[in-house]
Write a protein that binds this DNA or RNA. Structure first.
Lengths: 353, 353
DNA sequence: ATGAAAGCGCTAACAG
DNA sequence: CTGTTAGCGCTTTCAT
């Protein structure tokens, strides 16, 4: 039986079919495909015609197998629907596309099992980079795990990128693209302190969460620099949700009357805070100042518009793929992007008591 | 020179290395990998051990080349950051994961060039399904294009899925997962009409957009059924953005004083409407009723909470991959998911004038 | 139950 | 410039 031929069989045409139809050899077709090798213009157009006639498309898998690189980066998140993640995703996708890469999307729902499965999958796929996004619990177990992921991926020729997470250690073969949580929190707390606030509640403390740790550190450092003592009882544990902000605020209002400002751990929390305040008839910013963190679109849509810390989400995503793709002695492995406060309408000096 | 061996070279171990280490043949390893063929338990565990020892992972590309299916579905959107898309994405990703599939994410930014490029890419990748999401311009050109995409993908053995878009024609080899725009709009307009509203403005009319066409049709049919004439001057063209709703409302307020309700084309538009109303001191729902469409999370967060039409975003995404993956005579090719109104706080009977 | 042999579709040295 | 010769790592017949 002769070699399978797409013109007779009902299958996808292969490079061989194209070669046959154009009357050239297979490698020649491969060369016009790759474009990085001299081919006589006449031959070239014959081949192109044949490809068109046959409606030929290369087989990405065959190509990957034969050595050419895979051209895919993976993007691993807890959940795509968070506005926080969505914008990082956009940055990742944009940069990937502009570098001619495809983007694999994987979600873990915070499940360590799935996280591991995803990493294995990416090893199978030979993804060039695996970008893991979002805060984490900063304990030894986490670092151990990331160290394992990093080396496993490294062995498979791909690169782990930790985005918005702290480095698991300097010797770990991973790229880290982080943003300045502490600096942002410091600036924001200073903003409040400078306006005269002395009793500030931090809402949404998450024990052991890297995001929290870093933000709290900035919060406290600002207090120290302003010579203001931090009231630990005002650092309220909670999750990063609107309802958490809502509950916490109701409770705070019931228990204390000396607090003049709320530093919400995230914009989402701040949204809940504002809601509770509105329900309680507390005016913002006249009676109470409120600030958030993240600068998601919601922040500017709240009433009053939220003063918050801007995190460069999209840029974070873009840098993640850029750094992973262009590695080398010239390029940094660990990067921290700046944050800055965005002043809107939720901060005013405290009222005379 | 002997065959490359991972234990000596610094490369990824292959199935051959595993075979060697386990003292069996390559096909045997392949069999324990696939699991769908009898292998002696003893041999089996020897192989498993070898794989573990070598930290072996299959090469997805080699596997795809050799015949096993690709196990990837592609998800094509305009922009990941829209809450609308994000939830469909979540559905797609969830279902894909639960069916053991990987999910490719591609964005087009509404650029036809990129859209075409993406489809070609997916042909190269042998994606099992290519899910295209979001409204479209319902003209002959669109149908032509989708027809082309569908047949091109079909020839490559993959399936085009149109999600939240109308069918380009019955003979086209594509799966269509749509939702009931007209029914939702009909129900919502009826809700307003039943409450006594007679002058309702439809804000965010998009000429030739399928989404708009379908919603307007329901809007008009409800009016007809209630014996109320539609004032065409109240159907206001605009984009699906908050600022559009904001602008349109300011203008409407300045020009007309007989309108008692606004039907916003989307929740985003409704958010802008509410903002403009608040700025103008018009109370909702006492002075003006407002409704939206989509039921994105924002809807319940607005003040007052928005009465709107629920679209089953996640389910849309899940069905899209489910139907594409399990095709057959038993399974439907064209599916329309239901919508329903969600009554919250933005509708009341019109005030006596 | 296991091994030998033959590709899947492509790229990559080599020659000419 | 172009063709020849080898694989990439895996899955399948087909034997044994």
């Amino acid at each position: 039986m002769p070699k399978k031929n797409a013109e007779t069989a009902g299958k996808r045409p292969t490079i061989r079919d194209v070669a046959a139809r154009a009357g050239v050899s297979v490698p020649t077709v491969s060369r016009v495909l790759a474009g990085n090798y001299p081919v006589a213009p006449a031959t070239r157009s014959k081949v192109l015609r044949a490809m068109r006639d046959l409606d030929y498309v290369v087989n990405a898998h065959a190509r990957a197998l034969a050595g050419a690189t895979t051209k895919t980066v993976a993007f691993v998140v807890d959940d795509v629907t968070g506005p926080f993640y969505a914008y990082i995703a956009r940055g990742v996708e944009q940069q990937a596309a502009s570098e001619g890469r495809l983007c694999l999307l994987c979600t873990t729902h915070g499940d360590p099992e799935r996280e591991l499965a995803v990493v294995e999958l990416m090893r199978e796929q030979h993804a060039e980079a695996v970008i893991v996004v979002g805060g984490a619990w900063d304990d030894e177990h986490y670092r151990e795990r990331m160290r394992y992921f990093a080396t496993a991926l490294d062995r498979s020729g791909s690169r782990l990128v930790l985005c918005g997470r702290p480095s698991p250690g300097d010797d770990v073969p991973a790229t880290v693209v982080h943003y300045d949580n502490e600096g942002g929190a410091y600036a924001m707390a200073s903003h409040l302190l400078s306006a005269g606030h002395r009793r500030i509640s931090y809402m949404g403390f998450g024990e052991g969460l890297t995001t929290t740790d870093e933000r709290i550190r900035g919060f406290k450092r600002a207090h120290a620099d302003h010579g203001v003592e931090v009231d630990e009882a005002l650092i309220l544990p909670g999750s990063f949700t609107k309802s958490s902000g809502h509950e916490l605020t109701k409770k705070l209002l019931a228990e204390r009357d000396d607090v003049t400002a709320v530093f919400a751990a995230t914009d989402m929390v701040a949204a809940g805070v504002l809601k509770a305040l509105r329900e309680a008839g507390v005016r913002v910013p006249e009676d109470m100042s409120v600030v958030g963190f993240d600068d998601i679109p919601l922040a500017s849509d709240l009433t009053p518009a939220l003063t918050t810390v801007h995190v460069p989400h999209e840029q974070l995503g873009r840098e993640a793929v850029r750094l992973a793709l262009h590695r080398g002695p010239e390029v940094d492995d660990r990067v921290v992007l700046g944050t800055h406060i965005v002043v809107r309408e939720t901060v005013a000096p405290p009222r005379r008591r």
